[in-house]
Amino acid sequence: MKVISDPVRPAMNDIPEPGSTRCIDGQTRVHYEGYWIKTYPVPEDTPLARKRLIEALTRRLFNHTEHGLNIPGRRLDEARSAWESESDPGRKRVKGAMYAGALVNRATDIFTRLVDLQSTGVVVASNNDLMRECGRCLQEALSLTRLVLHRSGEEGIDELWGEPFRAFSIPLEDFYASRYLKIAQAMGDIDRIADAMVATFAQQPLFAGVGPIIREFAAAARIKTETLRTDPDIFDVWANLVTAGERLAGFAPRLVPSADAAADEADKRRASAGTHLLCNGRDLIFYITRARVAMPKSTREFEERCTTYAATGHIEMMPIPLPA
Score class of each variant (00 low, 15 high):
253 P>M: 08
195 D>T: 11
73 G>E: 02
285 I>T: 03
96 G>F: 06
229 R>K: 09
239 A>M: 12
250 G>Q: 07
87 S>W: 06
59 R>W: 07
279 C>K: 15
184 A>H: 04
178 S>M: 13
123 V>W: 05
179 R>H: 02
207 F>Q: 01
214 I>L: 03
288 I>C: 10
41 P>W: 06
7 P>S: 05
279 C>Y: 06
178 S>P: 00
237 V>A: 06
96 G>D: 06
275 T>W: 05
313 G>M: 02
47 P>I: 01
196 A>R: 07
114 L>E: 15
272 S>K: 14
69 L>F: 10
321 P>H: 12
313 G>W: 01
19 G>P: 02
138 L>G: 10
72 P>M: 15
319 P>L: 05
80 R>E: 12
161 W>I: 03
64 H>G: 00
175 F>R: 01
124 V>Q: 06
285 I>L: 08
80 R>M: 10
136 R>L: 12
214 I>W: 07
239 A>Y: 08
6 D>A: 11
237 V>G: 01
244 A>Y: 10
150 H>S: 14
85 S>R: 12
146 R>E: 11
137 C>E: 04
228 L>G: 10
186 A>T: 01
161 W>L: 05
269 R>M: 12
71 I>W: 11
97 A>D: 11
5 S>K: 11
232 P>T: 05
14 D>M: 01
138 L>N: 04
105 N>L: 07
233 D>Q: 15
230 T>E: 13
144 L>F: 13
34 G>E: 05
274 G>Q: 10
318 M>V: 07
269 R>D: 14
32 Y>R: 04
284 L>R: 05
141 A>T: 07
3 V>W: 06
115 V>L: 06
75 R>I: 04
124 V>W: 09
